[in-house]
């Protein structure tokens, strides 16, 4: 291999990363929604900015600066502290819309973290996807189905900005607000899903059942009665007075095994099943009572 050939490859690598920063940066805006330094946001639609919830401290008159230096004012369209996401609606002007990556992130993949916390221009750091994890409880009443961890340097003000692939397509949204001290990214597919709900409804509704439970093993005979291999379920050790669970007939001692025909094997799966569309809906809840499966109908409430 000659020196010049090798160097062509290095130059191509360097140029393609600069191009990725340029492309991802065209959809990365400055969001000044808090008292201390500004953070970043992603143009999710021509007039919608997706950012991190924890960097937005007010509802109106949020200054946003576009990549070309245009200064606009946005208002909060919706927020979900549970997943640390917020959507802002811009008053006017269109922005270049971000392109999500077509594939899910892979461990080891080269990524660039981008942010625009300063009017001076785009900022970037290079790393790889270190881990793909989840589900994880966020400590803010939410459950994140999946998260990405990267070793790219999280500069101050990068929260709300994108993690992009080497083609400049969005892999995730950077946030330091979900786990203390750790810089994580919310996968783009998940963030886009939440953003759609926020743009439409202003918040993500989370279901409320009103039970305390612990994970227990299901004996083989009872698995046979269930008609499937499910080694664990949730033993109900408390049912709150006046709760949806009580109204639906759940009692202490039941082993909860499925909600809406989806097996529930651990508390995280229960939390996952209670998010989104089930609120206010009569929902089939399967339990083992005295070793026999029964299906009750519970109208899931909303957790405030």
């Amino acid at each position: 291999m000659t020196q010049s050939n090798g160097n062509n490859i290095l130059t191509a690598l360097s140029d393609s990363m600069a191009a990725a920063v340029e492309k991802g940066g065209a959809a990365t805006v400055l969001v000044a929604g808090r008292r201390r330094m500004p953070a970043s946001g992603i143009a999710y639609a021509a007039d919608l900015i997706l950012t991190a919830d924890h960097v937005i401290e007010r509802d109106d008159d949020i200054p946003v600066m576009l990549p070309d230096g245009t200064e606009l004012v946005a208002r909060l369209a919706g927020r979900d502290p549970g997943s640390d996401l917020a959507v802002l609606r811009l008053g006017g002007a269109a922005v270049a819309v971000a392109e999500p990556a077509p594939q899910e992130a892979r461990i080891g993949q080269l990524v660039l973290a981008l942010g625009r916390p300063s009017p001076d221009g785009i900022q970037a750091s290079l790393g790889v996807i270190s881990a793909v994890g989840g589900p994880v409880r966020t400590g803010r009443g939410g459950l994140l189905e999946r998260y990405l961890r990267t070793d790219a340097v999280p500069y101050p003000g990068f929260s709300g900005g994108p993690l992009v692939d080497t083609a400049g397509r969005i892999i995730g949204l950077n946030t330091s607000g979900l786990a203390r001290g750790a810089s994580l990214a919310i996968p783009a597919s998940l963030a886009w899903q939440v953003a759609e709900t926020l743009a439409l409804h202003g918040s993500v509704r989370r279901g409320y059942l009103g039970v305390r439970s612990q994970q227990v093993a299901i004996p083989p005979a009872q698995q046979k009665a269930l008609g499937r291999d499910q080694e664990t379920g949730l033993l109900l050790v408390g049912v709150e007075d006046g709760s949806p669970a009580e109204a639906g007939g759940l009692i202490v001692g039941d082993i909860l095994t499925a909600i809406a025909d989806h097996p529930v094997k651990d508390p995280d799966e229960l939390l996952g099943r209670l998010s989104g569309e089930v609120v206010d809906r009569p929902t089939p809840v399967e339990v083992l009572r005295g070793g026999q499966p029964r299906t009750l109908t519970v109208t899931i409430g909303e957790r405030k």
Binding site: L10, M17, V21, G25, D120, A124, L126, Y155
Partner: peptide, 30 residues
């Protein structure tokens, strides 16, 4: 220069003579 271009550093960090490192240009400013 452009943000995102590969940047290479060489020096003697903590006395390690001639140690190299490679990342990218993070930002350009004043």
């Amino acid at each position: 220069l452009r943000v995102g271009q590969v940047a290479l550093a060489i020096g003697h960090p903590w006395g390690q003579i001639g140690a190299v490192a490679a990342r990218i240009i993070s930002s350009l400013g004043e």
